[in-house]
């Protein structure tokens, strides 16, 4: 237990240390990666631990993004209230979608979440007068601050992203190591048996979905606030697939896997696109090779071979 807590606190400390030594480009990139990692952390809670594969998480990310961005723009709120509002939108959205979608399972769950998310995407386009549709809008610079701290500056942005990541990763660690977390894994392994043991799988799956949506919403709201842009492309299907890729690459059902996966995907695209205009080819090939060589993702394979204690 101490070893596990130590590892996670150590990773957070390492990221704080990197703040002082990382070259500028990697410093700004890592800020974005940390925000997106929170999205993947939440996705993994549902997919990796509970065994539910959603193809509609962009809906929750976008709920956070638009909730924050539109409330700030409309009421002149600063980052704090904007973040809370966006976060609440995502939680409510996850609760509503969960109540409906969790009546299905397996591939049907995939498709239902995908379709609800597609409705969300079309909604951002349809209410163009308010959202500016695909073009999106910029959150005014002067609102992107909390307690008079300007979040549009590289340093505060990094520290804010790190703070969000630290809170998220510790909460997730607490969840997966709690009795609830063990029941989620039990549902993944055998839902019927869990039911027979007297637990209500629906209630636990709903809890997992709402928590997962909350992480996605926090990430979306933070993304809008820290990078200043809100647009429909973040509600599109690609952004539902993104956290799935991060998680699969980093390690399904691991706490830190999403961080590893998000970092790996970012640099894979960044480096490959510098070498060739056909960089999608490398991304595709990397996915295929990875799944053939290390099917449990980077951290999942490490856990299997060397560190079985990893959560």
């Amino acid at each position: 237990m101490n070893r596990i807590l130590g590892l996670h606190v150590g990773v957070i400390a390492l990221l704080l240390a990197l703040h002082f030594v990382l070259p500028d480009y990697h410093h700004v990139s890592l800020a974005r990666i940390l925000v997106l990692t929170v999205y993947a952390l939440g996705y993994n809670l549902l997919f990796g631990y509970t065994g539910l594969l959603s193809l509609g998480h962009a809906l929750f990310f976008a709920a956070g993004l638009y909730g924050a961005g539109m409330s700030m723009q409309a009421y002149g709120w600063t980052a704090g209230p904007g973040f809370l509002f966006g976060f609440s939108c995502a939680v409510l959205m996850a609760l509503g979608i969960g109540l409906l979608a969790l009546r299905t399972a397996g591939v049907s769950f995939m498709i239902v979440t995908l379709m609800f998310s597609q409705v969300g995407y079309l909604t951002t386009l349809y209410f163009n007068e308010h959202t500016r549709g695909d073009e999106g809008f910029v959150i005014p610079l002067e609102l992107r601050q909390v307690f008079s701290i300007d979040l549009s500056v590289e340093d505060t942005r990094y520290l804010a992203a790190l703070a969000l990541f630290a809170v998220a990763v510790l909460i997730k660690l607490a969840i997966v190591r709690s009795p609830t977390g063990r029941i989620l894994v039990a549902i993944r392994e055998n839902e019927e048996r869990t039911r027979m043991l007297g637990y209500d799988p629906f209630r636990y799956k709903l809890t997992a979905l709402v928590l997962s949506g909350a992480f996605a919403g926090a990430s979306g709201a933070a993304y809008g606030i820290l990078f200043g842009y809100v647009g429909a492309s973040f509600a599109s299907i690609q952004y539902s697939i993104l956290p799935l890729l991060y998680v699969l690459m980093g390690g399904v059902g691991t706490v830190l896997g999403p961080l590893v996966g998000t970092v790996a995907m970012f640099y894979l695209i960044d480096i490959a696109s510098g070498l060739t205009s056909a960089y999608l080819f490398f991304v595709g090939a990397a996915l295929v090779i990875l799944i053939l060589v290390a099917p449990k993702g980077i951290l999942g394979s490490i856990r299997d071979r060397w560190a079985r204690w990893l959560p």
């Binding site: 594969l53 960089y279 999608l280 080819f281 595709g284 295929v288 799944i291 099917p295």
Partner: peptide, 29 residues
């Protein structure tokens, strides 16, 4: 690809996403 993955449902999803990118890039190029 698929045979080597023993048709595992999750692994084949990732592999076919990879295939999607490869084919799309091939068509673009």
């Amino acid at each position: 690809i698929l045979k080597r993955l023993n048709y595992d449902p999750e692994a084949t999803i990732v592999a076919t996403i990879g295939l999607l990118y490869i084919l799309q890039q091939a068509a673009l190029t």
